[in-house]
């Protein structure tokens, strides 16, 4: 059995290592015999694998989300630290004072968050998060595909192949049409 390591209890262990240990544990289930009288276990093995991937990806989503929110909160705190400690500079005694303070506050927040959004680290984090959500969607598709097949319905991949072929055919027709137009215009010029 895997050591019961809680990621939250022992946050010194890198997240990737925790995932790796988890995957190693589940690999034992992939070694169930799949041939001859045991061939029926292949489907079970696929279901187990999909569920395992679902658990891993939801952990990744939680991890990336947590990092994302940490970055946002940190930037917000840093921006607030830049505000004057007392109100001597912004006494708020008139409408102009309020507008001046608002402009300063929004400008400070804008500068801090723009620096964050322009950083490569944050860009990579957003990409990881969006990638994780995309993988989640892909795993759900993998789970639903066998059920679609049992209902004699085409899967998304089947339809994708058709759409790609249709688009390729449209391009070929376009190229043929343009070639014919060129030939016909040349014929017209010769006839003149």
């Amino acid at each position: 059995m895997i050591d019961s390591v809680s990621f939250q209890e022992n946050s010194n262990i890198p997240f990737e290592d925790v995932l790796e240990k988890y995957q190693e544990f589940w690999k034992k289930f992939y070694n169930i015999p799949k041939f001859s009288p045991f061939s029926l276990t292949e489907e079970t093995s696929n279901v187990v694998q999909n569920l395992q991937e679902l658990v891993i990806i939801t952990s990744k989503i939680q991890y990336f989300n947590s990092n994302y929110l940490t970055q946002i909160n940190k930037t917000y705190s840093e921006a607030l630290d830049k505000l004057p400690p007392n109100k001597s500079e912004y006494p708020l005694q008139s409408e102009q004072d309020i507008k001046k303070y608002r402009s300063f506050l929004l400008g400070t927040l804008e500068e801090s968050f723009t620096n964050l959004f322009q950083s490569r680290e944050f860009g990579t984090l957003v990409s990881d998060l969006m990638g994780a959500y995309s993988e989640y969607s892909k795993i759900l598709k993998n789970i639903s595909n066998p059920y679609l097949a049992s209902l004699n319905l085409s899967s998304k991949d089947d339809i994708d192949v058709l759409l790609k072929d249709v688009q390729e055919l449209k391009r070929e027709v376009r190229d043929l049409r343009k070639s014919i137009d060129i030939i016909m215009s040349e014929d017209n010029q010769v006839a003149k």
């Binding site: 723009t114 322009q118 990579t124 969006m130 995309s134």
Partner: peptide
């Protein structure tokens, strides 16, 4: 390009997102 859009564009794993969406 030093814009935010440029930064997001350069770091995005676009294949993963489009293949699923």
């Amino acid at each position: 390009d030093l814009t935010v859009i440029g930064n997001f564009g350069r770091t995005l794993d676009v294949d993963k997102i489009i293949n699923s969406l």
